[in-house]
């Protein structure tokens, strides 16, 4: 695992967020099993290090663009879990007042804007955020999450080239779990490391172990510093393991056993915890306390959301146009 000299406070915060993210996806998977959440559901259980490592170098006022497998990315960005739960259950307490559901989460307070069910669809929008920051001279940066599958969309290629030419402050964060739905990466791309493509756009690209939260942090931190300094975009590819199916209910018979075994061995929370304990940053007792306390946070948020009111008809008609027309 990588060595990074971060404050104890920061490291513990990252560890905490990883547990929050893990508990979240385990909890909603359970609710989904019980039929308490309707619609589709993409889980990122086991991919926590990517989200947390990528968001840790960002400030609240940096913007993030998310994917369809986004719960953990939002948690990592600091989204309000209570309101997220509201959206997940279609309740009026959500940021979208229940209108968006699992695949369209956002939280404008932390500029997590937002998730996208159109694979690759959000990446050009994230370039627009970066354009605004450059034009307005704000020193904010934009970070766009996208998958290895999404990396093959024209929108993503166009966005990367556009941002590169304009030197916009953006980080293209490829969360490579080696699967796009049921298709392995090698059937979708002829390169092994997707970050190799960065060269073709004239921007730096690096591939890191996405289950090593410190490696992700380090690579993204460099990219963020570059972007803030006015040196333009970078691509960071984080290789990780998709431990759940393409969506809830996927029996994954097409996924090789060895892949899942390797993913289990590389559990990002275990790896990070081991390191923190070894370094004397955290005791095992403290780790267990964090594990328990974060679980309660998630449970409480979902209990509250279950009991929250549904949106009424006025919500349905609201914001078709968000501004006065005439």
């Amino acid at each position: 695992m990588s060595e990074v000299s971060l404050s104890r406070e920061k490291l513990v915060d990252m560890y905490r967020k990883m547990w929050l993210a893990r508990h979240h996806d385990v909890w909603v998977e359970d609710m989904k099993t019980k039929g308490q959440i309707l619609g589709s559901m993409h889980l990122a259980t086991g991919q926590e290090a990517v989200s947390v490592g990528a968001c840790a170098p960002l400030n609240d006022d940096d913007y993030t663009m998310h994917t369809h497998r986004e719960h953990q990315q939002l948690i990592a960005k600091g989204a309000d879990i209570g309101r997220m739960a509201g959206d997940m259950l279609g309740k009026v307490t959500g940021c979208a007042r229940g209108k968006g559901g699992h695949m369209l989460l956002f939280d404008k307070d932390v500029h997590a804007l937002g998730a996208c069910g159109i694979v690759g669809g959000g990446v050009p929008v994230a370039v627009g955020y970066a354009m605004a920051f450059k034009v307005l001279g704000t020193k904010q940066v934009s970070l766009a999450f996208f998958g290895d599958g999404a990396a093959n969309e024209g929108s993503v290629h166009e966005a990367m080239n556009f941002a590169a030419v304009r030197k916009y402050p953006i980080i293209f964060l490829c969360e490579n779990n080696r699967w796009g739905l049921t298709c392995p990466q090698h059937e979708q791309a002829a390169v092994e490391d997707l970050a190799d493509r960065a060269r073709g756009y004239g921007i730096p690209g690096v591939t890191v172990n996405g289950n090593d939260v410190l490696a992700v942090y380090e690579a993204v931190k460099l990219a963020v510093d570059r972007a803030r300094a006015g040196d333009g975009p970078s691509m960071v590819e984080c290789q990780t393991w998709r431990m759940r199916g393409m969506g809830f209910g996927d029996t994954m018979e097409y996924v090789p056993k060895e892949y899942l075994e390797e993913g289990s061995r590389q559990d990002p929370i275990c790896l990070f915890e081991k390191k923190l304990v070894e370094k004397g940053i955290l005791t095992v007792e403290e780790a267990r306390a964090i594990e328990a306390e974060t679980k309660k946070t998630i449970e409480d948020a979902y209990e509250a959301a279950k009991n929250a009111p549904n949106p009424d008809e006025s919500v349905f008609w609201a914001n078709v146009y968000a501004a006065e027309i005439c």
Binding site: L38, G39, D87, G90, K91, A96, R97, G98, K99, G100, G101, H102, L104, N310, P311, D312, E313, V315, F316, W317, V320
Partner: peptide, 15 residues
């Protein structure tokens, strides 16, 4: 109606 399709099961009937 000329409205995006909302997620919430409580709103579906309106769409």
């Amino acid at each position: 109606p000329d409205v995006q399709v909302p997620y919430s099961p409580a709103l579906e009937q309106f769409w």
